[in-house]
Amino acid sequence: MRIGIVLARARSFEEWAVTVPQGATIDDALVAAGLTAEWRQGQGIDGLALHGVRAESDARLNDGDRIELLRPLVADPKDARRKRAAARKPDAP
């Protein structure tokens, strides 16, 4: 099975493609990509997702799955949206 692994950064991303046998788990794919637990910890990875849905490292994979390496949020998305909306709002007379 072909599996994609993605790590998003502020202005860029890293991507790996691995081939794993049928029945492989997320952890198997990470090992195949050489992304050790120590490396992930050093990068600040604090979670995993499959196609945007939180997943555990023992989750089974299907051909074409995309694993996302998650980092902590640096800003609350709701607050960031409010700030962008306020910046676009025209000044009241």
Rank of each mutant, 00 (worst) to 15 (best):
A75T: 10
V18Y: 04
A49C: 08
P21F: 01
A24P: 01
R9K: 14
V20H: 05
A24I: 04
I3S: 04
A29Q: 01
R11G: 12
D46L: 08
D79C: 01
E68D: 13
A86K: 13
D79F: 08
V31R: 12
A87N: 06
P77H: 02
N62A: 15
E15K: 09
F13E: 13
V6P: 02
D28L: 02
I3M: 05
P72E: 11
L61S: 12
I26Q: 02
K83A: 14
L48M: 04
R60I: 14
A59V: 14
L35E: 02
R88I: 02
Q22C: 05
D27M: 05
G4T: 09
K78D: 10
S57Y: 06
W39R: 15
R71Y: 07
A33I: 00
L69N: 05
L7A: 03
D46E: 14
A37P: 06
F13W: 07
A37C: 08
P90N: 07
L30G: 05
G34Y: 01
G44N: 11
A10M: 07
R60G: 06
R82K: 14
D46G: 12
E14I: 00
L69E: 03
A87P: 02
L48Y: 15
A55S: 14
G64R: 10
I5T: 09
L50N: 06
E68G: 13
D76C: 15
R9Q: 13
A92R: 12
W39A: 13
A85Y: 05
L70R: 06
Q41G: 13
I67T: 10
I45Q: 03
P21A: 12
G23E: 12
G52F: 07
R54Q: 14
A32M: 00
P90R: 12
V20L: 07
G34Q: 05
D63F: 02
V31N: 07
I67M: 11
V31E: 10
Q43E: 15
T25L: 02
L73K: 03
R82Q: 08
K89V: 00
L61M: 09
A75I: 09
A10P: 00
R9P: 01
E14D: 15
V20T: 07
L70F: 01
A33L: 05
H51A: 15
L7Y: 08
A17S: 12
G34M: 03
V20K: 00
D65E: 11
R9D: 10
A87I: 00
A55F: 11
R66I: 09
L70H: 03
G34S: 00
R81H: 03
I45D: 04
V18A: 00
I3C: 04
L30V: 01
W16N: 07
A86N: 09
V20S: 04
R71K: 15
I3R: 04
A75K: 13
R66K: 12
L61F: 11
V20M: 06
Q41Y: 07
L7K: 07
P93Q: 09
A59N: 11
E15L: 02
V53K: 15
P77N: 04
L35F: 07
E15V: 00
A92F: 06
D28E: 08
R40P: 01
I5L: 01
E56N: 14
D46H: 10
L69R: 01
E15C: 03
V53W: 11
A80D: 08
G64Q: 05
I67Y: 07
A87Y: 04
V6K: 12
A10I: 10
Q41W: 06
T25V: 04
S57R: 15
V20W: 06
